[in-house]
Design a protein around this nucleic acid. Structure first.
Length: 571
DNA sequence: GCCGTTTTCGGCCCGACTGTTTTCAGTCG
């Protein structure tokens, strides 16, 4: 949920963890990070927990952190953090994001060379000052320079939609190698996270050295960061870091589990293993006394040995999935095959690239039973929105296409624009003749939370609107979500029967995973749309499905799993 | 700093790789 205070509090706790790490504390940073992570993942507004005096019910929050949270909520700042900040120069924190430099090295550089920020670090490395310090040498000095460059070049994470095709290509190249018995993408890409820091690939092979040689010699490789018998890391020309791990067949399951993460999910699994006096690593689930292997070949055996139902990769974020797996309460996640059609498609009529017929043929090829053409309406001139007359003409063309194509039904629709008051830029006499009316916000993103929420809810009261498009307006790496009270939007959707969109466009994925999971608590429906502007974009459905799965959604939560007859009834 | 079927103290996830060392500390995932 866009619980602003949750993020605000968590960021402060994360910062404390970083600073305590610089101080050399061993365990406190972990405690602060754990608390912060749980606050971010929580589906409860922390203000609510605060008001009901339930802060300590949040996992990882004890007496001390709870009192700090109270101080942040009451005063907006935290004296403890202010004091910590004063103990270190500002630039030190930023330097922690440079690869290869951790708190120990940074403090040493600060104490010995008075290096306080990235510029000073770069200068010292260039002047060959760093190699003079004990524990550092020529190589580490050169690495520091390389990693400063790397840090400057890509501070943003990659979009899943951009990286998945590249990762799959490299996966298929590696799979051609004779020595590769089995290969899997792992890490955040297997969990289908909306953004990806790097790509993890797992391979079974009895000849790891050959595989590593081939991998580090791929034409995509710009730099080999490290190369070993079980693990190597390369960086491609487009600055994507790829990790390859090679394991034996007998530890395939535990390795896949381990390298898929998330880190938080794995830490919790390991502590469950520890309770049984077992240890869990990439080599298996192993009894600490006898050193017998309890499970290792199959991923599902790891979970069942820990008395958990199998947890799909998309759920592995420590957002309650482990508890649900223990109680047999995991959701039956939606699959791409459940999708019967796409309800948000653009064509040449507005800013799309293809005709209605071309989009229809491409959708039919995907096995869809229906497709809603929702071009922009009048006021969105930047996207050459349609006038009333044009909408009428387009409806006639849609009728014609429906006569020409069998097996799929094209629905006439519109993506109406919600103006600053919550009015819609299409006349009611047109709206009533359209099959699908989707409404979304395209301007005035900086309104206050109250104004934005009122505006959206006003629009939702329009009798003809079926779907609220990309409900938070965020664009990954580009634009923050607008401030809108989603709780109120969910309540309104429940009352008014409005469907909430999961926009599958790779930079939108809006609603996002966490918001989907929260929306699931209401009696409402969502739908997964690609917002395609080109026939090629229809494949984005995969990312919308991933978001829905990460948001715990089941087919019954999603309107476009319905067949055409049921969908028409619903609309 | 948190937590508890080892419950108010004493633990806290685990292993690979690198670069500096000559047996290991730091960092990463």
């Amino acid at each position: 949920m866009s619980f602003i205070m949750n993020n605000k509090v968590a960021n402060k706790l994360f910062e404390i963890a970083d600073l305590l790490e610089l101080k050399g504390s061993q365990f406190k940073p972990r405690a602060y990070r754990r608390a912060a992570q749980n606050i971010v993942n929580s589906s409860t507004d922390i203000i609510e927990s605060y008001e009901n005096d339930k802060l300590q019910e949040i996992e990882g929050v004890g007496e001390s952190i709870a009192s700090k949270v109270r101080e942040i909520i009451e005063t907006g700042s935290l004296e403890y953090l202010e004091d910590l900040r004063k103990q270190f120069p500002e630039g030190l924190q930023e330097m922690m994001d440079i690869q290869g430099l951790g708190p120990k090295s940074l403090m040493k550089l600060y104490k010995e060379l008075n290096i306080k920020n990235i510029e000073e670090l770069e200068k010292a490395a260039k002047n060959k000052k760093i190699r003079e310090i004990e524990g550092f040498g020529e190589k580490s000095e050169k690495n520091i320079l390389k990693n400063i460059n790397m840090y400057k070049k890509f501070q943003e994470r990659f979009l899943l939609g951009n990286i998945l095709p590249i990762a799959k290509k490299i996966e298929s190249k590696l799979s051609e190698l004779e020595e590769v018995e089995r290969i899997n993408l792992a890490g955040s890409i297997r969990r289908m996270k909306e953004t990806i820091g790097d790509v993890d690939i797992l391979i079974i092979s009895t000849n790891p050295d050959k595989v590593m040689d081939y991998f580090t010699g791929l034409e995509e490789v710009e730099r080999v960061v490290s190369k070993g018998h079980t693990r190597s890391t390369i960086i491609t020309a487009n600055k994507l870091s790829i990790d390859l791990r090679v394991v034996e067949a007998k530890s395939y399951g535990s390795a896949l589990q381990y390298f898929t993460g998330s880190k938080e999910h794995n830490i919790k699994l390991r502590s469950i293993a520890l309770d049984k006096n077992w240890k869990l690593s990439e080599y298996g689930l192993i009894d600490k006394d006898s050193m017998d292997t309890i499970a290792s070949e199959q991923e599902k055996d790891i979970y069942s040995s820990l008395e958990l139902d199998y947890i799909e990769p998309e759920l592995r974020e420590d957002r309650g999935e482990i508890e649900a797996a223990r109680e047999g309460k995991l959701p039956q996640l939606i699959k791409i095959e459940d999708i019967q059609g796409d309800l948000h498609i653009h064509t040449k009529w507005s800013e799309g690239s293809n005709s209605i017929e071309e989009m229809a043929q491409a959708a039919k090829k995907k096995g869809y039973k229906y497709l809603a053409i929702c071009d922009h309406a009048e006021t969105l001139q930047v996207a050459s929105g349609l006038t009333s007359e044009e909408i009428r003409t387009q409806m006639k063309e849609i009728n014609q296409v429906n006569k020409n194509i069998e097996g799929i039904t094209i629905l006439s629709g519109i993506e109406a624009n919600i103006d600053s008051e919550g009015n819609i830029d299409v006349k009611k006499k047109i709206l009533k003749d359209l099959d699908v009316v989707l409404a979304s916000v395209h301007s005035g993103f900086k309104s206050s939370e109250k104004k934005m929420t009122d505006r959206i809810i006003n629009a939702m009261h329009n009798d003809y609107i079926h779907i609220l498009g990309h409900p938070t307006g965020r664009m990954l790496n580009k634009r923050e979500p607008y401030s809108v009270n989603l709780k109120k939007v969910f309540e309104a959707a429940e009352d008014l029967g409005i469907i909430l969109e999961i926009n599958a466009f790779p930079e939108r994925l809006d609603l996002n995973d966490v918001n989907c999971k929260n929306a699931k608590n209401y009696d409402l429906l969502m739908c997964i749309n690609t917002d395609s502007h080109h026939v090629e974009h229809l494949r984005f459905m995969e990312y919308g499905i991933a978001t829905a799965r990460r948001g715990w959604l089941e087919p019954k939560n999603v309107a476009n799993t319905l067949d055409l007859k049921e969908l028409r009834k619903l609309l």
